[in-house]
Design a protein around this nucleic acid. Structure first.
Length: 421
RNA sequence: GUGGAUGUAGCUCAGUUGGCAGAGCGCUUGGUUGUGGCCCAAGUGGUCGUGGGUUCAAGUCCCAUCAUUCACCCCA
């Protein structure tokens, strides 16, 4: 028989991994709630057309990384490679705008891209993110950025940098692209092969090239998009920066920050982890004022970001933020034999109803084995149930941390444990 | 898709010029009857990634293949 194993680029999360995820998820929920954002959950697969139109047919994500398949009815479906398009689709489908002029949404979910895995990059990975749909104001941009930073601050992460830029509205970008082409035309031959293909397709992506020769040419000759913003674009960007300053959020303006998804307009930003490997983008986002309209909805301005869970956890591990030990169950109940379980199990039920976590041994093991396990599982208390306890309806509650024992009737157990929590 | 590295026990890894498959950790049980941790002892656990080849003999040498991983690319 063929060995069954998880497929390339996917991972089980178990044991200590679960604790890390839960710790992060708890903080996420807390921060989202404090900003009054509402959770949204969308299906993991959608019509292929949604991503082709939303993300951009010629983007790498759509053109070579999607898990696309036909269902039995011949429909082309795709496992979502990102979440903004899905959220936008839901917004349009359910006519959110009739319910309120602005919606502040957050999500956390699994995404799928068929890339070669490496550190911080998997084929199934998870992103959390937010979308503010309905506000064109720079204040929305600033709030979204502030939210992204609050999460890291709340988690205690220190080694990261916020980069921001404005790529202008569609018209601005069209004009700037022409200028860029004209300026770089004489140096075209010195650029690398990929840059030359991008030259015609999406010339802005030249800024992403890591080839030192290309970077040098860009640095020396390429005009900054910030010098070519329309006055409205420039005003918008200035206001975003003003608000970040007022909130004391440190940032770097990076005119080379373009981003690969087609739908961005005006503000773009990225948070880079400084303790990560090659895949160092912790969070990326920006404004996308045309996406909703392109997907068939009303023209609705929006801004949001997406951030990688796995990368965040890697960054937190690198900073040693998962050190504290998890305490175990409130009580480990050790029945001496199967007869004692008749008493132990109802006691456990009563305690659980009272909100106390109780572990009952189900293997019929020796007392020594049970206590060894209780110790290993970091139980706060243990209690043995055997013939004497059953006869007297009393037991000895032992604190595993300070080694004290108190004798109690069964019915006082819940109060005693609650008191010690 | 391209390039490099690595595959031996549940985990981390030794394994010499080819010569009986190893250690530590973990797990199980015990160390005088019903009380954990420390210590001691015994036990459990591997088709040496897979398939070929060379050889009296292959974890070790050769070929292929698969997987994992890092980097390019791209992105969170």
């Amino acid at each position: 028989m063929q060995e069954l194993k998880s497929i390339k680029g996917t991972h089980d999360i178990l044991n200590s991994g679960i604790a890390k995820w839960q710790k992060v998820e708890k903080v996420l929920q807390k921060v989202f709630a404090s900003f009054c954002y509402q959770e949204i959950r969308t299906p993991v697969f959608e019509n292929t057309a949604l991503f082709a139109r939303g993300v951009g047919e010629f983007s790498d994500i759509v053109s070579k990384e999607m898990y696309t398949f036909s269902d039995k009815g011949g429909e082309s479906l795709t496992l979502r490679p990102e979440l903004t398009a899905s959220v936008a689709r839901a917004y349009i489908q359910h006519h959110f705008w009739q319910d309120a002029p602005v919606h502040k949404l957050w999500y956390l979910g699994a995404l799928f891209r068929q890339e070669r895995p490496q550190a911080g990059r998997q084929r199934q990975f998870h992103q959390y993110g937010v979308e503010v749909i309905g506000s064109a104001l720079p204040e929305a941009d600033a709030e979204v950025i502030a939210l992204a930073c609050s999460i890291y601050r709340e988690l205690g992460l220190r080694n990261y940098v916020l980069h921001i830029n404005s790529i202008g509205s569609t018209d601005t970008r069209k004009r700037y692209t022409e200028i860029l082409k004209k300026t770089l035309e004489p140096h075209k031959n010195s650029l690398c092969e990929t840059c030359n293909t991008r030259f015609e397709g999406n010339i802005l992506r030249l800024f992403d090239c890591k080839n030192p020769g290309c970077a040098e040419i860009l640095k020396n000759y390429a005009p900054s998009i910030l010098d070519h913003l329309s006055s409205e674009d420039a005003e918008h960007f200035t206001r975003v920066r003003e608000l970040l300053d007022v909130m004391a959020i440190p940032y770097e303006v990076n005119p080379a920050l373009v981003r690969g998804l087609d739908y961005y307009t005006r503000t773009t930003f990225e948070i880079k982890g400084t303790a990560l490997g090659a895949q160092d983008a912790l969070c990326g986002g920006g404004r996308y004022d045309k996406l909703l309209m392109e997907l068939g909805g009303p023209e609705t301005p929006a801004v949001g970001f997406a951030a990688g869970m796995e990368r965040l956890i890697l960054a937190m591990e690198a900073e040693g933020l998962f050190t504290e030990e998890e305490a175990g169950m409130d009580l480990y109940l050790a029945p001496m034999d199967s007869h004692a379980l008749n008493t132990a199990m109802p006691i456990a039920q009563t305690l659980r109803d009272a909100g106390i976590s109780v572990y009952v041994d189900l293997l019929g093991r020796s007392l020594k084995a049970m206590l060894r396990e209780a110790n290993r599982k970091k139980a706060k208390h243990t209690a043995v149930i055997g013939d004497d306890e059953i006869k007297n309806r009393r037991l000895q509650l032992k604190s595993m941390f300070n080694n004290t024992v108190s004798e109690l009737p069964f019915e006082d157990l819940a109060d005693a444990l609650k008191h010690k929590k």
